[in-house]
Design a protein around this nucleic acid. Structure first.
Lengths: 165, 165
DNA sequence: TGTTCTTGTTTCGAATTCGAAGCAACGTAG
DNA sequence: CTACGTTGCTTCGAATTCGAAACAAGAACA
């Protein structure tokens, strides 16, 4: 490979800014969620996904919607079960599958935490930007997300152990 | 507080996209760095900061430049010392202070990892965007970063333990 | 029907992160 | 000069995350 194309000033600012802003935002959201609802960002996201989907979700489906390893997801679901916010049921159609669904308490916790969560997101990002900038950000992130989704493995790649005989 | 101002469609896309894209990018960068240079993203950042600054940095200064707790930084610096990429020296002007500086090997590792790192950043974000979008992103992230910096505590706040006697 | 491959989830150990607490050196006020 | 609050770093235990391996149940196929 030829000599690398280094980042120019603007590109550097975009990257460094993005990195630091996302770290700080994560920190902020985590902080507020904990002192408000007593849940993690990941846990909140699990509750949110479950609430959004009409049916209960299997571990695999849930994992596909989120960015974390199967084992990481399993751990957090376990925590939520312990707190009584989520239920694990066997999938009648597939003995292997596990169906995850919100309990009443889980839905209540989500609804209670949501307003504060949205306020945090506004205070930390959305309300800092003009309407136009929000649209730009949405558009930029759509490109990045779509591309990264196909580029970054979240599950352990079985293909790595692929044997071509 | 009145009823919450929920996010509209575009705002939601901006937020969700940002969150997921940053998670995926982190993952991608971490992955590539590990298999290339054998360092973590945080470790890379430490090396990078040290290389950028003309003088060696104190722990506190380094912590201020990054987004991580003092203890987290201490751990990673410890790892880097163990690998011989970084040196800890006492600060002659202040017995408490510790000066961190790159070793020759540390600089070498950084320089070796840099091209691949930049390539990853390009492949995962920068090269997906138009020149205009990169400028927009840089501008947006500057606003967010500056604001978040003053909003999010990275060090344990001593003020919390403030005694009002 | 067995055999073998694949898929879905869980367990395990290691690495990283945090906040709180601990300790040591600084600086200041009496 | 001594006491006290402050600052800088480290240690500690707990929580979270990951990848690899284990396990169990479908599916494909001879």
């Amino acid at each position: 490979m030829g000599e690398p194309r280094w980042l120019n000033e603007t590109e550097m600012q975009a990257w460094a800014g993005f990195l630091e802003a996302s770290d700080l935002l994560n920190r902020l959201v985590e902080l507020h969620l904990r002192e408000a609802g007593g849940v993690t960002r990941v846990q909140y996201e699990i509750l949110h996904r479950l609430n959004e989907s009409p049916e209960s979700l299997r571990m695999t489906e849930l994992a596909a919607l989120m960015v974390c390893s199967p084992s990481g997801l399993n751990y957090q679901v376990g925590q939520l079960v312990k707190s009584g916010l989520v239920r694990r049921d066997p999938d009648p159609s597939d003995e292997r599958g596990i169906l995850i669904s919100l309990t009443e308490q889980g839905r209540a916790v989500l609804l209670a935490a949501a307003p504060g969560h949205v306020a945090t997101i506004r205070a930390g990002l959305i309300d800092l930007l003009s309407e136009q900038q929000v649209a730009q950000l949405a558009s930029i992130m759509k490109v990045a997300r779509d591309h990264l989704r196909s580029l970054v493995p979240t599950a352990p790649s079985r293909r790595a152990v692929d044997k071509r005989s």
